[in-house]
Amino acid sequence: MVREAAEAFQAATEQLTDILPNGLHERGPNGALLAVTGSMIPVLNGIMSVSDVPDAEEIRLLCEKAEPHVQQLPWSIRLRGEAGEEITTLAARRGLSTRLQQPFMLLSLADGPEVGRDQRQFGPESVTVRPLGDDEHETFAAVLGTAFGAPPVIISSLYTPHVLGQAFVKAYIAEADGIPAAAGLAIVTERHVGLANIGTLPDHRRRGLGRAVVEAILRDARAAGAHTAYLHSSDEALPLFEQAGFRTEESWAAFTA
């Protein structure tokens, strides 16, 4: 189940890159993926291996192929398997000397708890969660940019109307008394759904809005036939996803500048 979810995540990254005007993707001989979106987010440019044992030679080969395309971009090497000394040294020589550990979390939608409704009452606030249309990309970018302390253009340059209009991509917004206050993204590949960019405006945190977005994504994914949900979490967001039923199955290594 974990390996299938990891492969679904890799396939989703490849599929997203494929629809971008300047996107680049290429597979290594053992299945590792080089994917460059052009985003200013490091994990959206670089190399991803979902093998139990990463192949250092394959990673080196893909680094060489990546270098002409990431000279002006932040990028990364992400590994599901254990990063050995050879790959660690290889990453450092390319300026990727910061190593992060990222919890990879899964939830079985077949066994998971029932998720909530689109509209609920949170104390004095009435919260509605709805999918966004592709013409609302600026709203999506504004909420996530503020939630993560980043310029909205970083979000909108990747999640354009073209991207949000794809059948396998669905953006969500949570509105508190009609005001956009939280957002998130779902990417569906076959029978897996990946959750990403779950963020809440600072003034609306600890009120359940992020949880409401997660529940809406899970409910819609289950209705569409998905059997597994997956995500990478930050340490700060772990309690949110654990409350929604996700469990950490393994930890991935990410090398960045």
Rank of each mutant, 00 (worst) to 15 (best):
E250W: 07
H25W: 11
M40N: 12
L16C: 11
A254Q: 08
R205D: 01
F104G: 04
G38E: 07
L79Y: 03
E138F: 01
S51C: 15
A254R: 05
V193D: 00
A142I: 02
L61D: 13
S157R: 13
D118A: 15
D177A: 08
A91D: 01
R211C: 02
S233Y: 04
T13Q: 10
A254G: 01
L96P: 03
H162N: 09
F255Q: 03
P29H: 12
Q10M: 15
D118R: 15
N197P: 02
L218Y: 03
P113T: 09
Q102K: 15
Q121C: 06
R222V: 11
L96A: 06
S234G: 03
L238R: 14
V213R: 03
S39V: 08
P239L: 07
G116S: 14
A196Y: 14
E136C: 08
R130S: 12
V115Y: 08
G81F: 03
F104H: 08
H204Y: 15
A66H: 04
V127E: 01
E125V: 10
T89A: 14
G245Y: 03
V213N: 07
L109A: 13
S157W: 07
D177M: 08
E215C: 04
A253K: 01
P152E: 07
P152W: 05
L132W: 06
D220E: 14
A183H: 00
T13W: 11
A141M: 10
A171T: 04
E125F: 15
W252L: 12
A141Q: 09
P202L: 14
L90M: 12
S157V: 01
G112W: 01
A186Q: 05
P161S: 08
R207C: 03
A257T: 04
A142R: 11
I179S: 05
G194K: 08
M105N: 10
R99W: 06
V153R: 13
E190N: 02
E4I: 01
L144A: 05
L33D: 04
G46N: 07
M105D: 03
A147W: 02
P54L: 09
V214S: 04
R247P: 07
S251P: 01
L20M: 06
L201Y: 13
E67G: 00
R205K: 03
N197A: 15
G116I: 12
I87M: 05
Q102I: 05
L61K: 07
L16V: 09
G199L: 09
I59E: 04
L107K: 07
H192A: 13
D52Q: 02
T248K: 14
T160I: 06
A8Y: 05
E86R: 14
L158V: 12
F255P: 01
L107F: 12
Q121F: 03
P21E: 12
A221V: 07
E86K: 11
A83G: 05
E85H: 09
A5H: 00
A32Y: 10
T88G: 06
A196C: 08
Q15V: 08
V36W: 05
L144D: 00
S251T: 10
S126N: 13
